[in-house]
């Protein structure tokens, strides 16, 4: 199930305990009409399996790619997504909002 009661941190711990590489993405700032509030989280493993969300599905793909790099390097990253520019093929938020997402490796 994918809802507010889901246990993102518990999932991070159990995936890690099972030997998977794991990263955690957290919405740290929002501007305008962003779909998920500050504090929303997504947990992802090295195969791209994920639970939770940091947007309405607009930026999860990009966040998961960045998360894989963070899993390899161990260096956290802060990502910013804004209004999408269709011509530049950028990943963005169709709703016109802006979010900052912090991605860290689960040690």
């Amino acid at each position: 199930m994918n809802h507010d009661a889901e246990d993102i941190l518990g999932t991070a711990a159990s995936w890690r305990a099972a030997g998977r590489q794991v990263a955690l993405a957290t919405v740290v700032t929002t501007w305008g009409s962003s779909p998920r509030p500050v504090g929303s989280q997504l947990v992802v493993d090295d195969k791209g399996t994920f639970l939770g969300s940091v947007s309405g599905g607009c930026i999860e793909g990009a966040v998961i790619q960045e998360a894989k790099a963070v899993m390899r390097s161990g260096t956290p990253r802060t990502l910013e997504f804004g209004v999408s520019n269709e011509q530049a093929w950028e990943v963005g938020l169709a709703c016109g909002g802006k979010v900052r997402v912090f991605v860290e490796r689960v040690e």
């Binding site: 246990d7 941190l9 991070a12 711990a13 890690r16 955690l24 802060t78 860290e104 040690e107």
Partner: peptide, 26 residues
Amino acid sequence: MQRAVLDRLIADRAAKTPVASITELG
């Protein structure tokens, strides 16, 4: 996230203890 911090957050959630995690983003 360090394992000790994660384990502690999970235990606090189970015990219904309010807690703030503070992360320096750099």
